[in-house]
């Protein structure tokens, strides 16, 4: 292997955490982005429509 063990463990231990934080921020931003509210509302309701044919 090219990388030695200590490096890999260090990367695993540090970047894993940064990655987790970045991911959480990203997901929260997406979920609470004001412009997305309407899309989510629509998606939420759309499955309840009683229409059972493909749209063309």
């Amino acid at each position: 292997m090219i990388a030695d063990h200590e490096t890999l463990v260090a990367i695993a231990k540090s970047w894993g955490l940064f990655y987790l934080i970045a991911m959480s921020i990203g997901v929260l931003l997406y979920a609470f982005w004001p412009r997305n509210r309407k899309r989510f509302e629509k998606a939420k309701m759309s499955i309840l429509e009683k229409d059972d044919r493909p749209w063309h």
Binding site: M23, V27, L28, Y30, A31, A43, K44, L48
Partner: peptide, 14 residues
């Protein structure tokens, strides 16, 4: 009834 919180479902997905 629609799912209680669509946002929550996205957050828990990721």
């Amino acid at each position: 009834r629609p799912i209680f919180s669509y946002r929550l479902s996205i957050i828990s997905f990721w």
